[in-house]
């Protein structure tokens, strides 16, 4: 029988009290803030016409990816949807390369040929960046399959949304992952909306229980608390890595911005957004905790702010200065060796 439980409440305290050093905590703060500032900059650059097409911002969800990535080891695979900027930064990919891909320049991770939704890094084992809702789930499961086949001790962290979880291919993947005990950590980022559709209008039942029929354990986690995410990721990451099979972590989170840049967000009230922002912001709350518990000082945090501002400004400059791809790039990378 699958263990499924709602809200792993005690995680945050356990983690905060114990095993995580102040230096590590500051790293999480820094990573979350970098993602937020990067995304704000992206939004701004989009507004200036420097970024085209679709651009999906991760603002509000930063604690999820930072908490999960904090327990992964180099060589573990990561894959997600089009809302991918935060994941790439958390994987250690360079902000400049990510931003230059957003502007479609040759310095981008895909040489300008992928765009916001399609970036990859073999070096960081980041496998994209997928624009077809749900498609990353079987692919991520296949990455887990390759880890098991090679017996390399790695796992696959496969992220997807509350909309994607309704795709049939997700259950095809759950079935095979459970059947073959694949080392796949499914991270369901429930930000409450799939474009304009609220979870309740699209999904029956509890999302963390969606693996129950396959015997896949699922837990619901406060995805606005990086330490709660970390604790759950530690526990279930270990479970997955030990060969017991996949697990599902439903992250209760929230996206502050529209689905993409041109979304007027008429499907929810301003009050709803304002309430989450003021009460549950993953960065503000974490910042307060760091100060209250004496992990850091205002000055140290200001220094981090400054450092991040520089990184983001440099990324934006690089993304504007990097030239457009060579015309000859039109024809390259269609086939290997052609």
């Amino acid at each position: 029988m699958a263990t499924t439980k709602k809200l792993a409440a005690s995680h945050a305290e356990a983690a905060a009290a114990g095993d995580v050093s102040s230096a590590e905590l500051l790293c999480y703060y820094r990573d979350m803030l970098l993602i937020r500032r990067f995304e704000e900059k992206s939004g701004q650059m989009y507004g200036m016409g420097l970024i085209g097409g679709f651009c999906h911002l991760y603002i509000g969800q930063e604690a999820v990816v930072v908490g999960i990535q904090s327990v992964l080891i180099p060589g573990d695979s990561v894959i997600t949807s089009y809302r991918d900027h935060g994941h790439m930064i958390a994987c250690g990919m360079d902000s400049k390369g990510v931003m230059a891909e957003l502007t479609g320049r040759r310095g981008g991770y895909s040489k300008g040929k992928g765009g916001s939704m399609h970036m990859f890094s073999r070096e960081k084992a980041f496998y994209g960046g997928h624009g077809i809702v749900g498609a990353q789930v079987p692919i991520g499961t296949g990455l887990a399959f390759s880890h098991k086949y090679k017996n390399d001790g790695h796992i696959s962290a496969t992220y997807f949304g509350d909309g994607a979880v309704n795709q049939g291919q997700v259950y095809e993947s759950f079935n095979m992952a459970a059947l073959w005990k694949l080392p796949c950590l499914y991270v369901l980022e429930n930000n409450k909306y799939a474009m304009g559709t609220a979870q309740a209008r699209a999904a029956a039942g509890e999302l963390y229980q969606r693996g129950m029929a396959y015997g896949i354990p699922g837990v619901q986690v406060n995805g606005m608390d990086v330490l709660a995410v970390r604790a759950a990721a530690q526990e279930w990451g270990d479970y997955v890595r030990s060969g017991k099979g996949p697990a599902i972590l439903e992250m209760q989170t929230y996206r502050y911005r529209g689905h993409s840049m041109s979304d007027p967000a008429k499907y929810r009230s301003k009050e709803e957004v304002a309430k989450v922002r003021s009460e549950a912001d993953p960065i503000d709350n974490f910042r307060r905790m760091l100060l209250e518990k004496g992990h850091t000082t205002e000055d140290a945090l200001k220094e981090i702010d400054r450092e991040i501002k520089v990184i983001v400004t440099e990324a934006a400059e690089f993304a504007q200065q990097s030239p457009e791809p060579e015309i000859s790039e039109l024809w390259t990378d269609v086939l290997v060796g052609a």
Binding site: I79, V137, P138, I139, T141, G142, L143, E172, S173
Partner: peptide, 16 residues
Amino acid sequence: EHGFAGLAVGAAFGGL
């Protein structure tokens, strides 16, 4: 089919 085709693509990305 949808699932195992996707899984196999992931395995190919993973070096198999």
